[in-house]
C-alpha cells in the first residue's frame, strides 16, 4: 500500500480527499474562530476592567 495508490483511492481520490479535506479544513477554521473569539473577548474584558478602575 504505497502512498501513490493511497491517494489515488481506486480512482475516487478526488471525492474521498475532497470530502475529508474540506471537513478537516472546516474543523480547523472553527477552532481558529473560537480561539480568536476567546482572545477578542478577553481583550475587551481587560479594556473594560482598566476603564473601570
Amino acid at each position: 500500500m504505497n502512498w501513490a495508490e493511497f491517494f489515488y483511492m481506486g480512482g475516487r481520490g478526488v471525492y474521498v480527499w475532497g470530502a475529508y479535506g474540506v471537513t478537516f479544513l472546516v474543523f480547523a477554521i472553527e477552532i481558529a474562530l473560537v480561539r480568536h473569539k476567546r482572545s477578542l473577548t478577553l481583550r475587551q474584558v481587560r479594556e473594560l476592567r482598566e476603564a473601570g478602575e
Binding site: 473560537v34 480561539r35 473569539k37 476567546r38 473577548t41 478577553l42 475587551q44 474584558v45 481587560r46 473594560l48 476592567r49 473601570g52
Partner: peptide, 24 residues
C-alpha cells in the same frame, strides 16, 4: 464549551468574578 466560555465572559463582563479572573 470553548464558545460558551467566551459567551459567559462577554455576558458577565461587568461582574466582579470576571474582573478577578487570572487570565483577565
Amino acid at each position: 464549551l470553548t464558545r460558551v466560555r467566551s459567551i459567559i465572559l462577554e455576558r458577565e463582563r461587568h461582574t466582579k468574578w470576571v474582573a478577578d479572573l487570572a487570565e483577565v
